[in-house]
Design a protein around this nucleic acid. Structure first.
Length: 190
DNA sequence: GCAGTGATCATA
DNA sequence: ATGATCACTGCC
């Protein structure tokens, strides 16, 4: 299967679906004569204006405007005076939702990822497409469901009941299959 | 554990 | 104009 650049149809779906399906896809950064590729292993869904952890819960502001636009565009914002966060807009135009890319390749943590790939406000509002120098590819290596873990989102304790919802998706390495003996034998002594 | 750092938005 | 807050990281 040839590599496929994910298009607007991929992103124009519920954020939870997009967040899950982005695991195992490839984030590609091209610019200044170099290209970087990193397999996505951690995402979070911010599902709409009723989601109190989603920036769009604060309404349509200059900062959140991109999220109200069409799917497949980058929503990049600055936080804590230091860090850039990379999101891709999902859902139908007019419905504000996005997926935060928290980890890819060797990088763990959303700010480390953007720092490594030189992602900043210049990409805010740009399309996730080759033309912007930042896009996502499907390279045909599907992720088995058993490698996907769901947890609550990080750093959103302010969001009340929404903080506990399992909207974070993590691609975990396969554990070696337990042998019959391990399954039926005594637990470890430790 | 907690400081750093500055954009953003509500309040005035 | 001012102040609280913040989808984090690195160092104590």
């Amino acid at each position: 299967m040839p590599d496929t650049v994910l298009d607007q149809a991929f992103f124009a779906r519920p954020a939870l679906v997009v967040a899950r399906e982005l695991l195992g896809k490839y984030l590609v950064r091209s610019g200044a004569g170099v290209t970087m590729v990193a397999r996505i292993h951690e995402t979070e869904a911010y599902i709409g204006p009723h989601d109190l952890a989603c920036h769009a819960a604060k309404g349509h502001t200059p900062r959140t405007a991109v999220m109200f636009g069409p799917a497949g565009f980058w929503y990049v914002y600055f936080i804590y005076g230091i860090h850039w966060m990379l999101n891709v807009v999902t859902e139908a135009e007019g419905y504000p939702a996005a997926v935060l890319l928290r980890g890819a390749g060797e990088w763990h943590g959303p700010a480390r990822l953007t720092k490594a790939m030189s992602i900043d406000r210049q990409l805010n509002g740009q399309p996730a497409a080759v033309s912007s120098g930042l896009w996502i590819e499907d390279r045909g290596d599907a992720v088995p469901r058993r490698q996907i873990r769901r947890t609550p989102r990080i750093g959103v304790d302010y969001a009340g009941d929404w903080a506990a919802k399992p909207y974070r998706f993590v691609l975990s390495p396969d554990r070696p299959a337990a042998s019959r003996r391990q399954l039926s034998g005594p637990r470890g002594l430790s």
